[in-house]
């Protein structure tokens, strides 16, 4: 899940009797599973919440290029290099689709980036963790994309049309991402002793941060109810986390790797795995800026933007000159 801790605007879910007629129509439309489109009337809080959520989602895609991009020049074969580059390029594309969806709400991409660079908007905590060995590239695809897909599949049904359509496109493209990650893990887990050690090391470091991607436990997630009523959040954090653990454990067993959570155990009664939550203090510390890579990730994004200003301005100036020349003819 690339949107965590999105603060829902407003004062919580209103009863129908507290709503204006316009708000009642709006809610009824959502309840009928109709899409809300850019020019439709929508409550200010719905708009504000969506900008936060889609913006954070978009930021996560482009910051998410960095940890994997870290290994593009060191990919061990030409084919792995091409696959990884294509994959990280897809993340850039997904960022672009999401910024576009956000722009339909009346905020520009430059404004969103400005808020990211000033630390006023967040991106997913997961990208503040480093990729330290090649198996991390496998583990990121397998676990991080796996967790993201779990959320994004649901969001294809979200109430806001442009967001839902971006999700459809993203899900279609993302189907190869998790598979390429798992294919790296299979090679590593069945490879030399050193490769097996890399695979286990990557899993050890990324397991709990992956669980954090779904956000804090439902009991501490105060903003969910309104977002769920608006259908911009479809499942609760804990539901998705449970589903993720249930899906991932058999895959881990197939690889012959050991879960870094020793308490993970199949629970016949609930038909799912019992597991230990990640360290939520660490999660909040990372969100506050104290993860291993927060400073570097932000610096990389700000540098790319600042160093690119002359390019954006130069190409725009040329386009304006060209248009002026055509107009003068």
């Amino acid at each position: 899940m690339y949107a965590q801790m999105v603060k829902t605007a407003g004062t919580g879910v209103k009863k129908p009797s507290e709503m204006t007629a316009q708000e009642r129509d709006f809610q009824a439309k959502i309840d009928r599973n109709e899409k809300i489109e850019p020019k439709d009337w929508m409550p200010d809080d719905y708009r504000a919440t969506l900008i936060r959520q889609i913006g954070q989602h978009a930021h996560s895609e482009i910051v998410g290029q960095l940890p994997e991009g870290n290994w593009i020049t060191r990919a061990p074969t030409l084919e792995r290099k091409a696959i990884l580059l294509a994959k990280v390029q897809d993340e850039a594309g997904h960022g672009l689709y999401l910024y576009s969806a956000c722009e339909t709400l009346g905020v520009s991409r430059d404004e969103l980036l400005d808020m990211l660079h000033q630390g006023k908007m967040k991106y997913s905590s997961i990208f503040n963790y480093p990729t330290l060995n090649w198996a991390d590239i496998g583990a990121v695809g397998w676990l991080v994309d796996g967790a993201a897909i779990m959320n994004q599949v649901q969001l294809q049904k979200t109430s806001y049309g442009p967001y839902a359509r971006a999700m459809v496109r993203i899900c279609k493209e993302e189907s190869f991402h998790q598979r390429q990650g798992y294919s790296i893990m299979m090679k590593m887990a069945t490879g030399s002793k050193a490769q097996q050690a890399m695979a286990q090391d990557a899993l050890n470091r990324l397991w709990f941060p992956s669980l954090m991607m779904f956000g804090p436990p439902d009991k501490d997630s105060v903003h969910s109810a309104q977002s769920m009523a608006w259908r911009i959040k479809i499942n609760t954090n804990d539901e998705l986390r449970q589903r993720f653990v249930d899906q991932t454990m058999p895959q881990m067993e197939y690889l012959g790797l050991t879960c870094p959570d020793p308490s993970v155990k199949w629970n016949e009664d609930k038909g799912g795995y019992d597991y230990t939550d990640p360290d939520w203090d660490e999660f909040f510390a990372v969100l506050r800026g104290n993860g291993p890579c927060n400073t570097e990730r932000m610096a990389a994004r700000v540098d790319a933007w600042d160093n690119g200003a002359w390019v954006r301005d130069g190409l725009m100036a040329h386009a304006n000159k060209k248009a002026a020349r055509v107009a003068a003819e």
Binding site: G69, I72, G95, N307, G308
Partner: peptide
Amino acid sequence: SEWCGHAPVIEEDIALANTALDLIG
């Protein structure tokens, strides 16, 4: 490919990656 994630604007980031992918092929 060293540019991936660092280009001046997303559209250029994607375009550079396409060029690099062609060259790898």
